[in-house]
Design a protein around this nucleic acid. Structure first.
Lengths: 84, 84
DNA sequence: TAGATATTTAGACAAATGTCTAAATATTTT
DNA sequence: AAAATATTTAGACATTTGTCTAAATATCTA
């Protein structure tokens, strides 16, 4: 729960999720979409992965990232319970 | 949007919202529910207010805080759009 | 009006966060 | 095997964050 809210609390990470919603992307492709260094993107991806929001698969020298939105159900439930 | 995610990214602030869901509370009552100082709670309330998640009303020497969950719709929509 | 109570503001400080460059690791290509 | 490419790891550094104590402000009560 904590790691989820933490992962969502950054505009770059939220944008990464939006891009991954369109299609899977390699780390390099993601880095090219932003104006920050590759290591910084790598770190953001690590935080997203730790929260379960993305998964990664190594394909040769590339690493492809995919979004996983099921973990967001927990956040949805939390918010809905608060509103109820 | 940013201030909303930021406000939610702290366990104490999330707990404050849960308490306020039950009933309105004064700043002092809220502070008594936690093991941190009153100024710290005051600061958390400020962040929640800045995000529009709570409102406050001065009643004599007391300040009563109320939850406002409508702003969470924006977060809900953002998450649902991501899942869609 | 003086003292007590409720809350915030100010300022200090340690820990967490986001960024960078340089280097390491792994894979592919020539 | 050497060079090129893709990505991460390591470590440094500035900024942000959450906490504290002390002091300020406002209201109530004796």
């Amino acid at each position: 729960m904590n790691s989820l809210f933490k992962a969502l609390n950054d505009p770059i990470r939220r944008d990464i999720l939006k891009y991954l919603r369109e299609r899977d992307l390699t780390a390099g492709e993601i880095a090219d979409l932003f104006d920050i260094s590759k290591p910084s993107i790598s770190h953001h991806l690590d935080i997203l992965r730790h929260a379960g929001l993305v998964s990664s698969e190594k394909q040769g020298q590339f690493i492809t990232y995919s979004i996983n939105t099921t973990v967001l159900d927990e956040v949805l439930e939390w918010i809905i319970a608060l509103k109820r």
